[in-house]
Amino acid sequence: MSERPGDLERAVEATLFAAEQPMTELEISAHLEGASVGPVLERLAELYSERGINLVERGGRWHFQTAADLAHLLRREKEEPRRLSRAATEALAIIAYHEPVSRAEIEAIRGVQTAKGTLDVLLEAGWIRIAGRREVPGRPTIYATTPDFLTHFGLQSRRDLPGIEELRAAGLLDPVEEAFAVLTGGDDGDTGAESPSGEEDAD
């Protein structure tokens, strides 16, 4: 690497522009002969904060993205946003808040069986991943969210997720309030919710 002032900053900038996917600080450093890039990333993030594109960090990975207030200028009229079924939305929320979780644990919170296709949709979207297997009898597969989930929803980390009350107000936890309270250590008394039917979701 050249020792001229600003060369490392330019190299980091070029690396991120050319990257096909977001990169971790370690990956950027390895690409630049082990250079310390943490302070450089912070400077670039500040430099780009008021420009048409921003340098952002999502889940430990850095990438350039269109400034939020200009995103509408780049949307194509025929763009069709990804739409999730209610079952998939609920499953995604549960995974985000409780990861890693198994399908059985998702069903325990939702109060109904979760069709395999529901999780397949989230896997294909790149928003969840298989995180291993639970070390219990049967060794069920467990799921967790991905950096793409954080990027898509504009979250720096899972700490930025909305509060439980906001999810409840949006109806994402209804009608399994009692099961949710038990699983999260809340009041396990009668919430007045009807007993779940146990019927499998239709995808």
Rank of each mutant, 00 (worst) to 15 (best):
A87T: 08
P140Y: 02
V112R: 06
E166K: 13
A19T: 00
I95S: 07
L173K: 01
R51C: 13
L92P: 07
Y97V: 10
S85T: 15
N54G: 03
A193C: 09
D188L: 03
F17A: 14
D160T: 06
E33T: 03
Y143E: 14
F17Y: 10
V101S: 05
E57K: 12
T118E: 13
Y97W: 14
R159N: 09
H31I: 00
T24R: 15
H63N: 04
R83C: 07
R168S: 11
W62A: 02
R159A: 15
E57V: 10
G117C: 02
V176L: 13
E13R: 15
Y48W: 13
G59V: 01
R75Q: 11
V136N: 07
V136S: 13
P162F: 02
G163D: 01
L70V: 07
H31Y: 04
D148H: 11
L73R: 15
D203Q: 06
A115Y: 08
D120V: 06
F149I: 01
F153Y: 15
E57P: 03
I130G: 09
Q156D: 15
G198L: 08
E135T: 01
V56S: 04
R61K: 11
R134K: 15
G38L: 10
A144F: 01
R103P: 05
D69M: 09
I142Y: 05
R110T: 11
S195L: 14
I95M: 09
A115G: 07
L92A: 12
L84G: 07
S102A: 12
Y143H: 09
R61C: 05
Q21N: 03
R158Q: 07
L172G: 04
S36P: 00
T191P: 15
K116P: 14
A71H: 03
D160N: 13
G189H: 08
R129G: 02
A181E: 14
P39K: 08
T141D: 07
A96G: 08
E9N: 05
R76T: 03
E165T: 14
E166Y: 07
I130L: 11
S85A: 14
P175A: 01
L172N: 02
A67C: 09
D160F: 08
L119H: 09
A88K: 01
T66P: 00
E77Q: 13
D69N: 12
V182T: 13
G185L: 02
M23Y: 04
D7K: 05
K78D: 11
G111L: 09
T146P: 04
W127G: 06
M1P: 14
S49L: 04
E105I: 09
S29T: 01
G154L: 05
P196L: 03
D188Y: 03
V121M: 12
P100S: 08
P140K: 03
Q113C: 11
T15K: 05
E135G: 05
R159V: 00
R168I: 15
E77L: 14
P147I: 00
L122A: 07
I109C: 02
S195T: 12
L55C: 10
T89Y: 00
L55V: 03
P162Q: 02
A125L: 14
G59R: 04
G111A: 11
A45I: 00
A67E: 14
F153N: 09
G198V: 03
I106R: 00
S195M: 12
E107L: 06
A67H: 10
W127C: 06
A125I: 00
T141E: 12
E3L: 12
D174M: 07
T24M: 11
L73Q: 12
